[in-house]
């Protein structure tokens, strides 16, 4: 730990408290806006306040700073505020242009990209590592996947036009696409499930088995969402 960061502490704490108060005020503002929109603005305020706190804590304890110690919070805050502002401007325009893509297509793209990025990063971290490192990376990958998917869906929902269509009940085409895609994913999931006992013959480690089983699940999810995208684009007939 280093003492050089300590004098900044009170100022950073005051800034953080102020950002929390602003976030609460924004969220409770008596304006006619969806909860998600106000929630995004409030989250951006909290992240802006949190960024110097993270920078301070890491700098104080490890005596080093990087883009990940505060900078990443600012980038995410800017993305959230931008998405909320975009959603707000679209909502207020009466001549809003209807999105050409179905929300489920956008959702499928977000999930496919998130899965590919997180799995690639996980493979890079875990390849050739010991079991403990693999399992720790595995847990980290799950958290990263959830964060990417949630943030991606919030942004997609806010930028979708009309915004109500993002949460609409599925109609008969949505149900047909879902059934056909689930069928395709099921084939791969079943093949993977049947193959796993043969993989056990090679006596893999616990981490190896967990990763392989999860890999089968991830592949079947990729097939599912790729099928969703294909059926929406090319049709179910």
């Amino acid at each position: 730990m280093t003492e050089s960061f300590l004098p900044l502490g009170p100022f950073i704490l005051a800034f953080f408290v102020a950002s929390l108060l602003v976030a609460v005020k924004v969220y409770r503002a008596p304006v006619d806006a969806p909860d998600a929109e106000r929630g995004l603005f409030a989250s951006a305020c909290v992240l802006v306040g949190l960024a110097p706190v993270v920078w301070f804590l890491v700098g104080w304890m490890a005596n080093e700073t990087s883009i990940f110690t505060g900078g990443i919070q600012l980038v995410v805050a800017a993305a959230l505020a931008g998405a909320a502002a975009l959603g707000r401007s679209r909502r207020r325009r009466p001549d809003v242009v209807v999105s050409r893509w179905h929300f489920n297509e956008k959702s499928a793209v977000i999930i496919i990209l998130s899965l590919l990025v997180v799995c690639a990063v996980f493979a890079r971290r875990a390849w050739g590592s010991e079991d403990a490192v693999v399992l720790a990376s595995f847990g980290r990958a799950i958290v990263e996947l959830v964060v990417f998917v949630v943030i991606g869906h919030i942004i997609a929902a806010l930028t979708h036009a009309p915004i109500d269509a993002a949460g609409a009940e599925p109609d008969e085409r949505d149900r047909a696409v879902n059934l056909l895609s689930a069928r395709n994913a099921y084939y791969l999931l079943f093949a993977g499930f049947v193959s796993l006992p043969f993989y056990a013959v090679f006596q893999p480690s616990v981490a190896g088995f967990v990763v392989t089983w999860t890999g089968v699940l991830v592949l079947s999810e990729l097939v599912y969402y790729a099928s969703v995208l294909t059926y929406y684009r090319l049709g179910t007939e």
């Binding site: 209807v98 179905h102 269509a165 109609d171 008969e172 085409r173 949505d174 049709g235």
Partner: peptide
């Protein structure tokens, strides 16, 4: 397309898919 979608209780994208022959509607629709 939106009027037709509202009358059928489906999304506008579904009406587009029906018109383009990419989706065969149910008997009820």
């Amino acid at each position: 397309q939106q009027h037709l979608a509202d009358a059928l209780g489906v999304s506008r994208q579904t009406v587009i898919a029906i018109e383009q022959g990419k989706f065969c509607p149910s008997l009820e629709s």
